[in-house]
């Protein structure tokens, strides 16, 4: 499902030095698998997810998603591949504040191959318990509810892979558990692989497959 080979990414620091953030020689994730990556803040895990999602272009290496080589594509094709194959859940949810709950989910679908399907978006939002909040704006929702919108949006396009970047980082323990359960359930129901990064041990304990990001990232920063 997801395979990484010799992936490298460096940034230039304000002092003008080149800082290597990601260097992963070989790493993979099977279809439908759910795995957690443990990593401290600043360890490069968000950059790693951005590289997997094609939001960032790699300096070198390959990322294969469902047979398509993300790293060989231009930006426009990467956008398309992301819309077709990936769902992304951000720590801060990154909901569009000027759009309703339903519009947030529908917009997430509209860039994908199936296009906007309001009925499916409604069904998903009902599945995550927000059937009565379709016309609300994100600011009118609790943090936990916003997280659920982000989950629904990430899964709306029937992605093969869901990337979750500290998805419970802004939630208290009870809501974090609920959100995590929901993400895992919905991914399972949709047959999507899940890669979640977190530094929260409570979260990591929920996964049977946990990897330390330092063990796969050989960057020396």
């Amino acid at each position: 499902m997801l395979a990484v080979t010799d992936l490298r990414k460096s940034f230039r620091s304000p002092e003008g030095e080149t800082v290597e953030v990601v260097r992963v020689s070989a790493w993979s994730l099977a279809a439908g698998e759910q795995r957690a990556l443990r990593g401290e803040s600043g360890s490069g895990k968000t950059t790693f997810l951005h590289l997997l999602a094609g939001i960032l272009a790699a300096d070198a290496g390959r990322v294969l998603i469902d047979g398509a080589e993300m790293t060989a594509l231009g930006e426009s094709r990467r956008d398309r591949l992301r819309a077709e194959k990936l769902g992304y859940i951000f720590q801060t949810f990154n909901l569009l504040q000027g759009y309703t709950v339903l519009e947030n989910v529908v917009l997430g679908m509209s860039f994908g191959p199936r296009g906007a399907d309001r009925a499916h978006a409604r069904a998903l939002l009902e599945r995550v318990g927000l059937g009565r909040r379709l016309d609300h704006f994100p600011r009118q929702l609790s943090t936990g509810q916003q997280q659920r919108v982000a989950v629904a949006r990430a899964l709306a396009n029937h992605p093969k892979l869901v990337l979750a970047d500290e998805p419970t980082g802004n939630l208290d323990r009870r809501h974090a558990h609920e959100a995590l359960t929901l993400i895992r359930e919905v991914c399972r129901e949709n047959g999507a692989a899940l890669l979640l990064v977190s530094h929260d041990e409570d979260v990591l304990r929920e996964f049977t497959s946990v990897q330390d990001f330092r063990s796969i990232n050989q960057a020396l920063h």
């Binding site: 999602a53 939001i55 930006e75 426009s76 956008d79 398309r80 992301r82 819309a83 077709e84 990936l86 992304y88 951000f90 990154n94 909901l95 569009l96 504040q97 000027g98 917009l107 997430g108 860039f111 994908g112 949006r153 396009n157």
Partner: peptide
């Protein structure tokens, strides 16, 4: 810019 970046992260093309 944040909204635009979110849209891009959702798969919106640059030309869109």
């Amino acid at each position: 810019q944040r909204d635009l970046a979110i849209l891009r992260s959702l798969g919106a093309r640059r030309r869109m």
